[in-house]
Every structure is written in C-alpha cells, then in structure tokens.
Write a protein that binds this DNA or RNA. Sequence first.
DNA 1: AGCCTTTAGTTGACCAGTCATCTAATTGTG
DNA 2: CACAATTAGATGACTGGTCAACTAAAGGCT
Lengths: 149, 149
Amino acid sequence: MARRSSTPLSAEFHSLGQETAITLLRAADSVRRHFTAVLEPFGVTLQQYNVLRILRGAGPDGLPTLTISERMMEKTPGVTRLLDRLEKRGWVARERDSEDRRRVWVKITRDGLELLRQLDEPIDRADEECVESLSDREQAQVVRALRKL
Amino acid sequence: MARRSSTPLSAEFHSLGQETAITLLRAADSVRRHFTAVLEPFGVTLQQYNVLRILRGAGPDGLPTLTISERMMEKTPGVTRLLDRLEKRGWVARERDSEDRRRVWVKITRDGLELLRQLDEPIDRADEECVESLSDREQAQVVRALRKL
DNA sequence: AGCCTTTAGTTGACCAGTCATCTAATTGTG
DNA sequence: CACAATTAGATGACTGGTCAACTAAAGGCT
C-alpha cells in the first residue's frame, strides 16, 4: 500500500513526491502572478475578480454570502470582508432577504458588470499566455493528472 | 505564432489554457492545505517552515535578510516581519554585521533546528501523500511540463 | 572632504485568509 | 408556546503579502 519514495528527476529534490509538490507550488505562483499583473491596472485583485465572476454567473438575483464562500472554497469571514471592499467600490450591492432576515443577497452592479466586460478579453488572453510554454499535449496531460488532486 | 484557443477537456471551461490554469491553481491549493495541516500542530506556518529550511541549509553563519527574501522569491518587507515572528518564538537569531552595519545576519537557533528535526519525518511523508493519487509516470509528466513555467 | 547614488533593511498602510467568538434570526422539539 | 439547537453572517485578532516611503550605512566621484 505505502509507496516507496521514488527517484526525483532533478538532484535538487529528495523524492519524486517532493519534486512534484514543489514544482506544482512554483508553477501555480507563476500563474497567479500572471493574472495579478493583468488585473492590477484595473485596481482589482484576483479574489475580487473571482467573486465578481461568480456573481455575474449567478444572474440578476445574486447569491447569499455563504453560497459565495462555498463556491470559492473559502471561509466566510474572508468573504464578508472581500464583499465589504467590493461594495465600497460600487461593484456589488447587498440586500437583506425579507423572508429570512439572516440571509444577505449579494448581486453585481451595473458598474461591476462593466468592469468585467472590460476584463473579458485581457483575461482570455492571460488564460492562454500563462501556460503558453506548454504544448496542448502537455496541458492535457497536466489537467488529466492534476484533476485527481 | 499566436495559438488559437484549444478545446478544453471539460465543458466547464472556455479553452484548454483556462482549464490548465485553473486546474493548476486548484491543485496547488490542495497541496498547500495538506502541508499546512501537517505543520499546524507544531504552530508553524508553511512560510515560516520554508525560512527555517533555508536557514538550516545555509549553515552556521546564517544568511543576510535580503538573501533569504531572494531565495523565497518574496518581497523583503514580508520577510522582515516573518523573521520578527520567528525571532519572537526563539527559532532564529539576528545579528548586525560588524563590517557592513547595514547588513543583518539571520541564523537558525538550536530550538529552530530541533523543531525542524521533529518535522523532517512528517514532512517527508506529506511530500509523498499530497500527490499520492498520481502514478510516478504522471508525476514525472507533470514535473517535466510545469518546470517550463 | 563633500555630495550623490546605491544597498540593506524597516515601517506604515492596505488586501487577503484563518480561527474563535459573537449576534440575530430561524427551526425543531417537548 | 417556550426554549434549545442550528444557521447566516459579522467582528476581532493574528499571519502573511504587496507597495511606497523612509533610515542608515557604504561606495563612488569630483
């Protein structure tokens, strides 16, 4: 059952597992930096962008706060404060549910939608660029493997 | 030169590039969570652990702050404050260079080394565990591809 | 020597993520 | 109906990452 530690590809590492983990973390950092650089001129962070995308996808009623935090796989406190900032910038609006007054519905505003519209093209480009040093074959291999994590 | 957007493997995505980028970010999060869970009982964070590993590798003289921040590929201010916390816990010591008094040498303490000693085994295990759902072949594919980023 | 530039590192302000705790509203059960 | 348990979300305190501005010490040049 337990796998013996396998030989790494590079002498820099103890084991193949270590090499995979660290290479993965580094690669993800590189991708994150790439997106951050695209968003930075617009004054949006990657997480803020993610929330706005989720809200655009959710349609005109928006979503309750907890649903957003589930979709982002993030803890609620972080999301609450992220929404505070998005609300202050006028990109989202919050409204308490009149039926269940614990619940807060969050929806993207006209300004938020306009921001996303401006970002759609640059982000599509960034999606390609940040992994452009990999062939389609390599990308497919990576996706198929990493999906298992 | 410019690559046309390639077909994603899953309908969830617009393009293969997007699918690769997002899958990569998610996988890295999973790995990060795995390591964090191992370190948490010891009261160390992943970044703190990284610094301690770098300092152990550097030998008894330690390293200047800026060198540490280069090796971590991180901005200096963050490292300064990380070191503040490590110093407060007694895991590192700082000493101003008597030749060049701008420079601060940071070295790991006996307590810091003892902490790492206790962590060596669990971390080696975590290196394997966090990617154990991939075969050696898949890991090698992933490493070879992601090294290009 | 005097001054300008560069280098090493710190500090302040902000965004983000996590944990623990808290409030308020709702639901479930006797 | 009343009261406990659950749920939605907010708040405080801390770690961490980034940018901009700052201090202090070297180094270089006239």
